[in-house]
Design a binder for these strands. Structure first.
Lengths: 189, 189
DNA sequence: TTGCGCATGTAACCAGTTACATGATTTC
DNA sequence: GAAATCATGTAACTGGTTACATGCGCAA
């Protein structure tokens, strides 16, 4: 199962949208401030090579155009299958940890294009449900941290607030999907 | 400058509070859900050894007590100097990126005990100032992402909301410090 | 002709993950 | 004497960081 990194999945997701060269991908990571991914060639190019070795992408040299030859990568059927399997994993408590919260967001970011809005909405609901059952245990832990210095307690508090902000986001996003679904229903009438 | 990892600084901060063994530290990381640190022996023990090689901590075997021999680590003067230097770095735009936001929180978490509440408060103000100048540029970037599918746009949106939540936290924390300062002033009257 | 922007790549290094090994003491 | 708990450690692997190398075409 653990046959790919987060960066690898990010690359698969982007290549599912359109064929891109390594340089294109680097530019995307460099210009999208949200991304937690490095745009360094030492990260991107080896990652693309690994994906190719595993048969998840295929790169072809595109001649004649522009300056130096570009190697343009496309996702393969096998790659798409792997990507979808990764996105389809159930959300478990462990995914909630901050270390892995970026992974959930990445899974969600490409959901519309791989599975459509119904699945994206279902993902959000699962996410919100899991989060809202996790937060109370965090709050409880925080309550036991009274003897700490103020800065330490506040730092812990910021962690909890991150989760609460994420939950608010999920609920707002659910509402956004529901509203859009209603609108498209009306249009069909 | 880059002579220590985040984990290394976390260890230094905890050892500044009190002497601890590797096992103690593992338990702390395992039981504190906020921490983004691994409690695996393969992370902790090598990290402690590195800190010791660099003269930042010193471990002494504590005999006779309990089961197996424990090696208890203490921070050295050199270690404390290094820790304080790390905490004292100015906050720059690059620190705002999510990849490094955990580092700022860690720096802050131990601020009361190393520098006292005035410096902690100053840190929060610097943090809030830097954040509030960063967020508009994120919002602007988000505004240009209209052609994206909904899930992608929402994922970006969640990134921005993380920053906004962090800013609200900083402002609340500033207020908490100011209130406490006022109370201690009154007590002195 | 040199310097810049596009574009791909590699090599050394390093830290964390996973899994395993081991040692000492208490409890059943 | 088996199992559980405390406690320390190591080895193989892996992927990201940093820095460097290279190649092509265009413009100054």
């Amino acid at each position: 199962m653990k046959d790919n990194t987060l960066l690898g999945y990010a690359l698969l997701g982007l290549l599912h949208q359109q064929p891109l060269s390594g340089y294109d991908l680097r530019k995307i990571f460099a210009s999208t401030p949200i991304g937690e991914f490095s745009d360094s060639p030492g990260a991107i190019y080896p990652a693309l090579r690994r994906l190719q070795e595993r048969g998840l992408v295929r790169g072809v040299v595109e001649e004649s155009k522009g300056l130096r030859k570009r190697r343009v990568f496309r996702i393969t059927p096998k790659g798409l299958t792997s990507f979808k399997a990764w996105q389809s994993q159930p959300i478990v408590r462990d995914d909630m940890m901050i270390r892995r919260s970026g992974e959930l967001l990445l899974r969600f970011a490409f959901m519309d294009q791989t599975f459509g809005p119904e699945r994206a909405l279902a993902f959000l609901r699962e996410f919100a449900r899991e989060l809202s059952s996790y937060i109370p245990s965090l709050r409880q832990h925080l309550a036991h941290a009274n003897e700490m210095p103020l800065s330490g307690r506040l730092a812990l508090e910021s962690g909890v607030q991150d989760y609460e902000a994420r939950l608010r986001w999920a609920r707002k996003s659910i509402a956004a999907y529901e509203q859009r679904n209603n609108e498209s229903k009306k249009e069909r009438l």
